[in-house]
Design a binder for these strands. Sequence first.
DNA 1: CGAAAAACGTTATATCATAACAATTGGATT
DNA 2: AATCCAATTGTTATGATATAACGTTTTTCG
Lengths: 172, 172
Amino acid sequence: MMPAKQSSPDFKKSQFPAKNHDHGRCIDDAVAAAEALCARKGLRLTKIRRRVLEMVWQGHNPVGAYELLDRLRDEHKGAAPPTVYRALEFLLDCGLIHRIESLNAYVGCGTPDHLHSGQFLICRHCKRIAELSDDTISETIRSRADRLGFAVQRQTIEILGDCADCRRSQTA
Amino acid sequence: MMPAKQSSPDFKKSQFPAKNHDHGRCIDDAVAAAEALCARKGLRLTKIRRRVLEMVWQGHNPVGAYELLDRLRDEHKGAAPPTVYRALEFLLDCGLIHRIESLNAYVGCGTPDHLHSGQFLICRHCKRIAELSDDTISETIRSRADRLGFAVQRQTIEILGDCADCRRSQTA
DNA sequence: CGAAAAACGTTATATCATAACAATTGGATT
DNA sequence: AATCCAATTGTTATGATATAACGTTTTTCG
């Protein structure tokens, strides 16, 4: 067996990315998934939108709109706040990215195939984000709300803390 | 028995306030709890801080910092953004209010006796907020995070949807 | 093609929040 | 009471995030 760089699907589903995973592949996969999704739904992944998506995927950290704008300006003269906010809105509506409310920032969605409000673990130290998809959590919330007659429309779940890697480095 | 205006403790714990509850009492209770807490901890609930707390408790809706500022200015000439943000920071640190990240707004805490990150149901229509305190939810999240070696520091849980009252009015 | 819709450009402004430093106040200690 | 220190508040400026409004260009599709 190859020891190989990690790009197994499960890290996207439930864990922080391994330190040395093949990140170029993350970006490529995300763009490919976006293209497929847009093709399927008849949506237009324009040059700007694709570029913003790629920039969001530059890392597994959440990125602010104005940081994206700065990067976009390097290659796209006329970029202004609406340029990036429109792209973000499109990507959010498609489910290709998520907005992290507690950080006013955006992060790529690894599983854009079905619309969902994400559940996020956010490391205070390295700032990386892991997206969970735990039905137990969302169902518990839904049933608890149900009992109060409350119809859930969207769940915002953002958990701040210390990831395993950072905890190890700290004690060391 | 008196039919009496509702101010039983359980509505604060887990439900939206009844339409005709004695809201003056909510404010009074919140201020009394704040005074007790500050006295116990040797913190100073100054005039400004108390006033901001009262203003947050004017309703069960989240309130923005600049709306508080506007109201504060009516009676406090020199009020400026730092005035209100400092008061909010103090109240947040004490656990007397919560910040709703998805709305950039603030809401009173009905159970400030122990520090906690709240769980909120937010009605899209009437904008009222109910605070849950469901240990099942927070423990499920904590154990799921644990399994990934992630140490939870703070949970942000904000559920958007339609409350029972508004659902009834809509169908009618 | 030509009309309508979608996307984008451009300028201005709204909204939320903090930095930095000076002035004042509250409360403990002498 | 006078003094001192720390906490609070005043004041001005600015940073950070986001949207409104309207005109122009591009794309789509009959």
